[in-house]
Design a protein around this nucleic acid. Sequence first.
DNA 1: GTTAGCAGTCGTATGCTTTGAGTGCTAGAT
DNA 2: ATCTAGCACTCAAAGCATACGACTGCTAAC
Lengths: 345, 345
Amino acid sequence: MEKLSDRKEKILKAVVDEYIKSATPVSSGEIKDKHFNNISSATIRSELSTLEDMGYLIKPHTSAGRIPSKDAYKLYIDRFMVKIPLKQKEMELIQNSFKERFEGVEEIVRRTAKVISDITNYTSVIVLSNINKVKIKEIKLVELDEHSALVIIITDSGIIRDKVIALSNPMSTVYVKDANALINKMFSGKTVAEIKSPDAIIKKELADFKELYDSIIAILESYGGTNDSNVFIEGTSKFLDYPEYDLDSAKKFLTVLDTKEKFAELIEQNQDIEFSIRIGKDESCGLEKCAIVTARYKLNGKEIGHAGVIGPERMDYSKVVSVLSYVGKTLEKIADGGNDDKEKQ
Amino acid sequence: MEKLSDRKEKILKAVVDEYIKSATPVSSGEIKDKHFNNISSATIRSELSTLEDMGYLIKPHTSAGRIPSKDAYKLYIDRFMVKIPLKQKEMELIQNSFKERFEGVEEIVRRTAKVISDITNYTSVIVLSNINKVKIKEIKLVELDEHSALVIIITDSGIIRDKVIALSNPMSTVYVKDANALINKMFSGKTVAEIKSPDAIIKKELADFKELYDSIIAILESYGGTNDSNVFIEGTSKFLDYPEYDLDSAKKFLTVLDTKEKFAELIEQNQDIEFSIRIGKDESCGLEKCAIVTARYKLNGKEIGHAGVIGPERMDYSKVVSVLSYVGKTLEKIADGGNDDKEKQ
DNA sequence: GTTAGCAGTCGTATGCTTTGAGTGCTAGAT
DNA sequence: ATCTAGCACTCAAAGCATACGACTGCTAAC
């Protein structure tokens, strides 16, 4: 793709900027008024015309202005997107979301999703994953009643997850103690991946605790995979604010969101890079005119999953990336020791 | 309100039935074709006219058929609503939802909400409440690391909830043991309400564990009130299936659902009766053309909260009530000993 | 009390016209 | 070579008039 002249770039940027604001086709006159005072609209028109030929602009119909093509968004992101500093108020809002000391992943993640959605004004999604790579610090087994126990899994990144399991044989306190000891001997310090594929020898040692062992493996399995309880969505109603969506797309959008697992796959496609911006590539799954921006998130140095924002193609990419980035940084610090030391962005 | 003649009743029922199916105004001819073969449409027209005068029917405009008024729905519910037996498949679906042995409230409740929404095809909401009236069976304190612990609350209805709390002083194992003993001495066997208003004497005894005590009270407080984590909503997208809602109402609806707390209040208004059906009474809160059916739910004999369905005024009340009722019965049995003994409705 | 018949109502669908925002082209100015 | 003013052309959207048809309500006869 050949290099654009400076003026062409400036005009293209103008179109994208205006379209992000208004969601209506941008005309040559509008560009002249708001971005140029030295050239006429006719000149801009001829430039627009060549930009259209190059595939960066689209005319909805002859007598309308232009809207950016997907390529235009991509170029815009490459060339013009800068991390804009967040407003003081926004940063405070993010900091405040994490004021209270941490209380289990669910709580943190829910708040993270909420604050991302609130500040960007788009729907946000967080998918927890990569549990496989995380090390188990300790597993605690707490007796609840004769037939059930609570398994508490503590990872070295400070993530705590727990789940009630059922046991067919009545549990004695002794059993619990033994089981606790054995399980920790086996599991602690290992990654989930390691635990999932144990040697036959270890398996034998566990004969007495087969049921318990299986239950724990099942929990680890479900936390690793894309599971309903690993997906957090906030701000579902936000996307209805954008005029490009009608009842039909609303329905589609909500249906996709209702089946969280499927949606999670979308978010997780970003495996390698820090940020991924996908525009209109997910038509197959009912998200036709959407762009998805995702980032990988860490907690205490370990990857814990992906956070994403979903909105119209003309979303405010600069803002979204800035917010995702700032929230990500804030999050990384939580496990260490609270966020008393406010840092600059 | 005077008694209606049998024929008037039959005609009114016909209008409601047809309107529930089609969501379009019902005409005299349609009623004749589908429900009468002995009287003419003209006769039905004159009956419709008097029913309109009596306030049961509404004409959207002169040359349209009639739609039921709120009063008509109420009469319909009183007079004609019967618990229709669910289909075999539906019952199986409900039973299967609870096949796995229970694993904490969240899990059960989420599934309950899901199955209600799936079978009725309306949005479902469950609000946990009444924790105040529930007795604490045991509270367990599990050390996680130096600065945090997991509080596990087990109630006599088998509900298990837990939360991570932070502690400013490093915890020793001894401390945990002592605290555990003391807390249980104090709390177990009491209702949450009793715990919340402790005698001054008890408070003194707790001096050493003030911080811990406060944390636990805070947890109980939050579980009692209508809190984000006490509200479960499923099937948000379902309501877009109904033609009476446009983009505007969709937006309102979703916004209300996004602020779960507010929504919970609506559901909880039903305090005294087993079922409550409210039609169009919640206009103030953005739910203009909605009806809400709620039921109080028990787990192991104790009230745990309210389950509700929200949909258009013309919702299939019989079906909804039947489903809520059957799910409720199924739920009651879970804590006892699984659901192996399938019972008839 | 019931019914057939018919006039009257009003929402909806359809097609036509007007309007105006925007473009593309061209000829002349810079 | 560029740029620009001017003008013809296009096309969606808005407005308007007409026709249609699904109803009702009324009346007169059964």
